[in-house]
């Protein structure tokens, strides 16, 4: 099917988009946080997937490649939103969306508080650092992050290091010395 899609078969392209629709939506949502522009971002990704399919190399994983497009679209969106900082802060500040399924209401409240604080800390980061750290939180390895962000492994590691440092600072904590960080977190792929 992939070969047909690359060759321009619209039915096959549609099938690929359908199969990855939820993956794209979820990844975008986690990268950019709650936003009213999610549908638009998703549409942009879908269009880029279709137009970019002929450039897909054989050795590339389709999912990682689509993830890379999501990462680029999300990063552009975060940069734009940082320019429109007022809008960004308003959209980020929505504790109501952070409802969890935990039974105890006090735990729910704490989970919401944690999510809001976490999102605010992520908002403090640059777009690249934020995307890298979010991907790491989602469980991607450094190699996958490097591939999705279109950068060298060493660049991805550095981004993660500085992102962690800024994230901890945003939580009111100093992350400790660099060596400890590199050995504890970034290297631990």
């Amino acid at each position: 099917m992939l070969a047909h899609a690359v060759a321009g078969d619209r039915v096959a392209q549609g099938e690929i988009l359908r199969a990855n629709h939820q993956y794209i939506r979820r990844l975008l949502h986690r990268l950019v946080g709650p936003t009213s522009e999610l549908d638009d971002l998703q549409q942009t990704v879908l269009m880029r997937v279709v137009t970019g399919l002929p450039r897909l190399r054989e050795e590339e994983s389709l999912k990682t490649w689509i993830g890379g497009i999501c990462v680029h679209v999300a990063r552009d969106h975060i940069r734009r939103r940082q320019v429109r900082s007022v809008v960004g802060s308003l959209e980020a500040d929505e504790p109501g969306r952070a409802r969890t399924t935990a039974g105890n209401p006090v735990e729910q409240l704490e989970a919401r508080e944690g999510l809001v604080r976490c999102r605010r800390a992520l908002e403090e980061l640059s777009a690249s650092h934020r995307v890298a750290l979010t991907l790491r939180i989602m469980g991607h390895s450094v190699d996958e992050i490097a591939t999705m962000m279109g950068s060298a492994r060493s660049t991805a590691r550095l981004r993660l290091y500085y992102a962690r440092k800024a994230f901890c600072r945003a939580f009111g904590a100093d992350p400790g010395d660099a060596a400890a960080l590199l050995s504890d977190g970034v290297e631990n792929t």
Partner: peptide, 23 residues
């Protein structure tokens, strides 16, 4: 606990559902 819940919230955040027609 709050930190852990926050990070888990970002990791497991689910987007608003999209209906079949929109898709």
């Amino acid at each position: 606990k709050v930190l852990r819940a926050g990070v888990a919230g970002v990791r497991d955040a689910e987007p608003p559902a999209v209906d079949e027609a929109l898709m």
